[in-house]
Design a protein around this nucleic acid. Structure first.
Ligand SMILES: [Mn+2]
Ligand SMILES: [Mn+2]
Ligand SMILES: [Zn+2]
Ligand SMILES: [Zn+2]
Lengths: 144, 144
DNA sequence: TAAATATAGATAATAATTATCCGCTGAAAA
DNA sequence: TTTTCAGCGGATAATTATTATCTATATTTA
């Protein structure tokens, strides 16, 4: 997963669908593809403010919405705790979520789709997507 | 899973911890254990109103909070779409969620804990709980 | 250049849930 | 029996991440 490559890909898709790649928007994209920590909208906003101090939080949300429309961002909603975003791997995948420090780790596993199919089949359920969150303590927090 | 047995169990636990089993509270418990459709707070409230027309929605939420404290209800939060509750099986288990009609089906699978452990182990992650949602169309909605 | 469209930023609105307040109830204590 | 008092129900206000709205500005198109 090359951040620069992914940034170029997203930039191209956005331009091709007639949207504009403003400096603020590019900065938001860069923050998303450079960060593998699943940042919140606030996290992204804070980072953008360094280069574009007048950027509104609404602008961050608008770019996230744009990426959602393209299907190039994965949103992990946590109700009142807000959402965290994965702009590097927009497809569903398991996450290890530390309930102590808030860190979110990516995880991969083979044959998860097969398991999901085996759950859906008996109910004649047609699968579109999924969400698999594992909550607990990361290695750092577990030591304390 | 006997609804009546579960109702008796919940009633006993609530009394044993010094809480009171008011008629409204009992009605809310009954609505929860009788319904395997993963009702929302509103759903429960509507049902309670038939027998106790002055019940406040806040009372429903308070009883749900009580059950959460005991660990005897599973909350499935969906952000702005609110939460759905499982008062029959309070432990984590996979759900098949129809994005068309909102129906939520229970699902069970062997060795899910083993799979989760295999994901957590490489990261030295200490698992506490999990959430596994599968989104798609139920058999009814898929036919249309 | 002129017109059309998209976007940024500011601000108001949304809505599920939670907090707060107050009067009531019921069981235990005196 | 009377008093006490924590728990509770109901009403209402507050919370807060996100979305909608509005206007000025920037960019593209003709
Ligand atoms: Mn991820
Ligand atoms: Mn369930
Ligand atoms: Zn941690
Ligand atoms: Zn359906």
């Amino acid at each position: 997963m090359d951040s620069e490559k992914r940034l170029e890909y997203l930039s191209r898709v956005i331009r091709e669908r007639g949207n504009r790649l403003t400096p603020q928007r590019l900065a938001i994209l860069r923050a998303l593809v450079d960060n593998d920590g699943h940042p919140s909208a606030e996290d992204i906003h804070k980072e953008i403010l360094r280069d574009f101090p007048t950027t509104s939080l609404a602008t961050v949300y608008k770019t996230i919405t744009l990426l959602k429309d393209i299907g190039e961002i994965l949103e992990l909603g946590f109700g009142d705790d807000g959402s965290r975003f994965d702009g590097r791997k927009p497809y569903p995948h398991p996450h290890l979520i530390c309930t102590q420090c808030g860190q979110i780790l990516d995880s991969e596993v083979d044959n998860l789709d097969k398991l999901i199919d085996s759950l859906a089949f008996p109910n004649q359920f047609s699968v579109k997507t999924h969400r698999f969150d594992i909550f607990g303590l990361c290695s750092d927090c577990a030591q304390k």
